[in-house]
């Protein structure tokens, strides 16, 4: 019963005090700390959105009347493209968790396959968001010009200025996260292909970037509800 370890752990991997708090490695704990601080940022954004739209409720535009475009068609399809983007992000989250699972079995081929799908899904999402921004900026006339009816941080043809500001800040901040997530996933994909993690003896790096990637999906779930649906 005395404090004896079941398994000798390399001194280099133990925390300073000779223990590992919560039984997690240092890197994973720090990833969770980072995610908490990032979640506070997004929590700030979304609560500010709630504050603004709650007292501007009457003037606040109806989302279905703005986001009804779909690439390559002129049909009126409210919310469907955003729903598709949401679905793509959820699926890329699933391929990520499958990569983590493959990593626990030390299955390099599995990790490479699922990480590749994750990178692809993330890239499609970033591209979709760029298209979404372009459509939103163009305004109701659909023309990207320098005229005043384009949406920007200082003008908004759809309604209150705050609506455009929140759109750009929230989806922009989220999109930046997706972009950096794609880059980080790509690095981990290349390193898995090179066999770095087999050499190291564990695939925990996949799990750590996985936490970040799932967090991005988590944020989008809330953005989808609070910005687009409600």
């Amino acid at each position: 019963m005395a404090g004896e370890a079941t398994k000798a752990i390399d001194q280099a991997e133990l925390w300073g005090g000779g223990r590992s708090p919560f039984s997690v490695s240092y890197g994973k704990m720090m990833m969770w700390f980072f995610l908490i601080s990032d979640a506070l940022t997004f929590g700030g954004f979304l609560s500010a959105l709630a504050f603004a739209r709650h007292h501007l409720e009457d003037a606040w535009p109806v989302t279905e009347n703005i986001f009804f475009h779909f690439p390559l068609t002129h049909a009126h399809l409210p919310l469907l493209y955003v729903a598709l983007m949401t679905f793509i992000l959820i699926i890329s989250s699933v391929t990520m968790v499958l990569a983590v699972e493959a990593g626990h079995r030390m299955d390099r081929k599995g990790v490479v396959k699922w990480m590749a799908f994750t990178v692809l899904g993330g890239a499609i999402f970033v591209g979709s968001q760029a298209w979404e921004w372009m459509t939103f900026i163009a305004g109701p006339d659909g023309l990207l010009s320098t005229s005043a009816d384009n949406a920007s941080l200082t003008s908004n043809p759809y309604g209150p200025q705050l609506y455009a500001d929140f759109f750009f800040f929230i989806t922009g901040f989220h999109g930046t996260h997706v972009l950096s997530g794609v880059v980080i996933n790509l690095i981990v994909l290349i390193r898995s292909m090179q066999g770095w993690y087999d050499e190291r003896g564990h695939y925990e790096m996949v799990e750590k970037v996985g936490l970040y990637w799932h967090f991005i999906d988590l944020v989008w779930v809330f953005v989808f509800t609070f910005f687009y649906l409600i």
């Binding site: 404090g3 039984s23 490695s25 968790v97 699972e101 493959a102 626990h104 079995r105 030390m106 003896g201």
Partner: peptide, 23 residues
Amino acid sequence: DIIEYSLDTHHDEEAGKKIRKKI
């Protein structure tokens, strides 16, 4: 008092199947 470490979390094919089912 037992030091488990998240770096050591490995599982076999059998457990993997169960986890995938949940996923």
